[in-house]
Amino acid sequence: MNARSEAVFTISIPRMFRLAAPVLGLAAALTLTTACKTSEDAAAAASQMTTTARDLAGYYARMDTVVVDTIELNRLQSVLLGTTFNDQDVAQLKQTEQEIGKREDLARNLRDLSASFTKLTGATSAKEVATASNRLGSALSSISSLPGGSALPAALATAGKEVEALAQEHREREAGKALDATASAVSELFRQEQPAYDALFMQNLVLAQSLAAELLKRGWVNEGELLSPILQPFHLAPPQSSPEIHQKLMPYAQQQLATQMAALTAAEKKATDGMTKALDEMSERIHQLASDKAMDKRSTPLTLADVEKWIDTATSAVGSNATDQN
């Protein structure tokens, strides 16, 4: 296990404390909410949180694939252009991958916790809630920042224990407000880290494009494949590349790179912005619930559709699909 390294995405102590400490309050608070407001609002809130957290986990799974791909692309760049990419560089990216993985675990635990609320009907369900809450508390405690940043607030580790304690003590009434703070903190965490997520994705794309351009220049690409739209309807196979085809189709192939680059960039931006908005929306709805107001919306945040689309269209240099199957 890597040592807890310095904070990656620096979050102030009060914010992380609010995230971790009441996270189990999320369990207890929804128990309270469900008990006192066995209403469509509470059920809708639990359902929305489940979906939002599920997609958050899928988003992080996708980002994990990006980091893994980045390692491979850098190795290929090293082979093609002679750039240095040694154990130090691999280790840094491996740590990044590990931290993204922890955020994915956090989102999955949040999803499981939310899902268990929808089944609150008795002792068995309350036990499921407590178990899920404990797991979420542990997951929060295990998150350190991505490598190279400033020190992670020590309060986070303490907050994880507080989370478990809340479950044990059944401090549901206090947790009602904590649920509100928890949803807000999850939203804020993602928002704070969004620039780094965008940068992680873009560096992968820029590197891939630069190497693709290099392969095109060297003639190490089968441009004949670009003729597939013409030939495929007639079950005819595209030709292997030749000097003539290379010369003729090279500009078109270069344009393909630019077009696809723009499309992939736009899709990621839309997904990340969509995830930010969905988390904000979830937070707002929980706030309404915690404030004893009626929720004005009960449907799943619309922007999650962009997130799910982006997750499902993942392609990988190493051949894996990043869709969350859990």
Binding site: V8, T10, Q203
Partner: peptide, 23 residues
Amino acid sequence: QRDALQAQYVTARRNFFNCINKT
């Protein structure tokens, strides 16, 4: 010249990834 250029490129890459990990 190639070695000097490569060295600077690698440094720029490491700087970028360090920054990814810091706020």
